[in-house]
Structures are given as structure tokens and as C-alpha cells.
Design a binder for these strands. Structure first.
Lengths: 128, 128
DNA sequence: CGGTATCCTTATCGATACTG
DNA sequence: CAGTATCGATAAGGATACCG
């Protein structure tokens, strides 16, 4: 606070906001799942597809491309037949998972409270 | 559920995943902005609208309803003319912002690296 | 195997007119 | 002031055929 820079939260409302720029990317349906999967080690395209389960090839492809583009993951192609492509986390990707894990933990610890709040809200509307 | 159970990340792939259920809600375009704004204290509808700037009335209304429904914020109606409605954070909402702030800080600290990675990716595709 | 291109359906969102 | 209802544009997403 007292150091020169403003706190990060002070400019989340600015129009090209760097924080929103970053968070919007990983806030999508699939990025977190892919990252979690890769945390378990190197994975190939179809391994990821099977592990995540309900993701389409297109979305997996896009998500991987985005993550690679942002430097979260590394894509390695082996000149073999049949072709082999491996994905794994970069240091950046790994470092991202640190604060992310706290948020996941929070969600885990509070989802019951949240569900209860939703039910209560619904009940109030119905009963009122 | 958390006691003695597997780590939260172990069931992010399950179909009705509580973590995704929670994170999908606050991962939208506006929830975080509204929460950040309310962190500054009690706000009224049009105050939020002005502070966030580029949000439509409809989206603000929906976002507020979702956040209220999930127990992140409290909506207080005063029986006055003209009508006055105030929004503020609940304890749950406040507690959510703790891990969220770490993620925002991470995004703030790493957005340059990410932008550089994006540029490099683009350059590689163009130059290759 | 590891994707991309295409088609089509559905969800999202902004603008705005209207209500209490 | 504080929203809700309706409409239309657009983007996201799934299914799948096809390519290297």
C-alpha cells in the first residue's frame, strides 16, 4: 500500500484490465481441468480427453492452444509414426496452481454453505 | 467430506463437481467486479452500475441475484420513496475474497510474462 | 494419433421499453 | 430509484467429417 504501486484490486475496473485479461482466460469451462490433469504429469491429447471425460476434441484443442499460448503448458511433438504429442506444465503453469489451489480449497470447504444458501433462497421465494 | 477424504483436486473431474459448481458461478464476466466494488463498502444499484462502468442493467441485476442466491452478498430494501436498496458483502463473500485476492495478485504479477508468451507464440507462428 | 474445418444448436449479452 | 421483460445479435460449444 505504502509502496509506489497501487494494490492490484484498484484497477480491476480499468478498461483493458490485465487481471481480467488473465483471469478471463483461465476462468473458462476447461482450462482448470486441463491444468489439474497435467499436474499429474505429462499427458497426451487422448489421455487428456479420456481423463476429463466430457470435453469435446475441439474444446480440448482450443484450450490446449490457449494454455500453450499463455505459457502455462508446453507442447512437445515427437517425429514418430504414429505421431506423438505430449503436454506438460511449465513453471508458470505450476506457479499458477498455487494460488488456484487455495481457491479450490475454499470452494470445497464452502460449497455446502453455498448450496444451503441457494436452497434457502429458493424456499423463501416459494414460501413468501 | 474434507476430513480424511482425498484432496479437493481429486474430484474436479467428477460429473456434478462441487468445485466447478462454485467456481463456474464466480468465474463469469461480472461477479468478481461486483464483489470488488462491494469490498469498498455498501453500494446501491446505480452506484455499482457507475463504478463498474460497462455493465448493463440486466447483467448487473442477474449478477447481484446470483451472488445473493449463493450467499455472497446481502440485499437490503428500505421502505422509502424513492426506493432504496443496498448491497453489501456477507461473511461468506468476504471470506471468498481472501483466496481470490491471492489469485488476483498472481495475475497482476504475471500478466507481463503471459503477454510476452502470447507475443512470442504469435511471432513464432509468423516467423516459422 | 492428433488434431482442424464445418455445421448447427444453444447460451450469453446489450439495448431498451416498461413497472412498482 | 431499482429493477424486470422482451428482442435481437453474437459468441460459445458440441458433433462429426475429414486431413496430415
Amino acid at each position: 500500500m505504502s509502496d509506489g504501486a497501487a494494490s492490484p484490486s484498484s484497477y480491476v475496473f480499468e478498461q483493458p484490465c490485465p487481471i481480467r485479461n488473465v483471469l478471463d482466460r483461465i476462468g473458462d469451462q476447461w482450462s482448470l481441468l486441463v491444468l489439474q490433469s497435467l499436474e499429474g504429469g505429462t499427458r497426451r491429447f487422448n489421455e487428456l480427453s479420456r481423463e476429463i471425460g466430457d470435453i469435446s476434441k475441439q474444446m480440448l484443442s482450443r484450450t490446449l492452444k490457449h494454455l500453450e499460448q499463455d505459457g502455462f503448458i508446453r507442447r512437445t511433438v515427437y517425429a514418430e509414426v504414429p505421431p506423438r504429442v505430449e503436454y506438460n506444465l511449465t513453471g508458470l503453469g505450476r506457479s499458477f496452481l498455487v494460488p488456484m489451489r487455495d481457491l479450490v480449497t475454499w470452494a470445497d470447504e464452502n460449497h455446502r454453505t453455498i448450496c444451503a444458501a441457494r436452497d434457502e433462497y429458493t424456499a423463501r421465494r416459494a414460501g413468501a
